[in-house]
């Protein structure tokens, strides 16, 4: 029997602490999959919102009905001659009705409502001098307001960033709990095997060998548990509604492409965490044994 085999054998297989580690690792990995998904999705969402709104703007014209056509023409002319504006297009009644449908329902009698006229603006990457443009618009078309979406974009981006921070904090907490459980289980396992440790020290085994016997078992159980938990978490993610259907608020939650490597990496990260925690605990306990 070689040293590797004997280090597997010297610690008795019984011990609830060892199963506790596997079970906890599975639960923590399952939760970590969702925290990771939340983190990744929040980052993606923030990026999408940023990209979707960053080079667009809307001019809203609120004017008496008899001046609406004239002011709209003036605004379009101002926009056409302003550097930094790539395109400006008056939205059709159908497009405006489509925007309002989500709030007011279908079959909206647009004619009966004093709705402002909307102009969809696309900016160049550098964008216009917004302050100057606003002043010019207010001078030539008093009812026109240039909205570059900043007031929408900022809270959305901040919300997404906050969501990502929360997800990352959850990951740190999950990792800390995992490390604490491994440490507790390692301590319990070492304490319940005091006789094994004593005998091994008596026959001249070094701390490295004794610790290895415990650390290997803890690491293996934690890794297997994490693999099972991550697999279940990944399956649960796959069962969430497809983003393409847009049928649920959760449809944006999940991994895409290379992002699926993140749940796959969880057992590896857990193994490293469990190994380090169990090793630190084992050497700490062994210091007290002569």
């Amino acid at each position: 029997m070689n040293r590797y085999q004997i280090s597997r054998l010297v610690v008795p297989r019984s011990g609830r602490g060892v199963w506790l580690v596997g079970l906890s690792a599975a639960a923590m990995a399952f939760l970590a999959v969702f925290a990771l998904a939340l983190s990744v999705s929040a980052a993606r969402l923030a990026q999408n919102w940023q990209a979707a709104l960053s080079q667009t703007a809307t001019v809203r014209i609120s004017a008496p009905p008899e001046e609406m056509v004239e002011q709209t023409a003036i605004v379009l002319e101002v926009l056409r001659t302003t550097p930094g504006i790539a395109d400006a297009r008056e939205m059709t009644d159908d497009e405006q009705a489509g925007l309002l449908e989500a709030w007011l329902g279908p079959d909206l009698p647009l004619d009966a409502l004093p709705l402002p006229r909307l102009i969809d603006v696309t900016e160049t990457p550098g964008g216009p001098d917004r302050q100057g443009l606003r002043l010019r618009l207010s001078a030539e078309a008093p009812g026109a307001v240039y909205d570059d979406h900043t007031r929408w974009r900022r809270p959305l981006a901040e919300g997404a960033a906050r969501l990502r921070q929360l997800a990352n904090l959850s990951l740190v907490l999950i990792g800390s709990v995992m490390a604490a459980i491994v440490m507790l289980a390692s301590s319990a396992s070492l304490a319940s095997n005091a006789q094994v440790i004593r005998v091994l020290r008596l026959v001249g085994a070094q701390d490295r060998f004794i610790a290895q016997a415990f650390v290997r078992r803890m690491t293996l159980r934690a890794t297997l548990g994490a693999a099972a938990g991550a697999a279940l978490g990944a399956i649960a993610m796959l069962l969430l509604p497809d983003p393409a259907t847009g049928s649920s608020v959760l449809s944006g939650l999940g991994f895409q492409g290379i992002g699926w490597l993140l749940p796959v990496s969880l057992p590896v990260v857990t193994a490293i965490l469990a190994w380090a925690s169990a090793k630190a605990t084992a050497f700490g306990v062994l210091k007290g044994v002569t």
Binding site: M1, N2, R3, Q5, I6, S7, V10, V199, L200, V203, G204, A205, Q206, F209
Partner: peptide
């Protein structure tokens, strides 16, 4: 065999 196997 432990004194041998546990000490490499």
């Amino acid at each position: 065999a432990l004194p041998l196997s546990a000490t490499g």
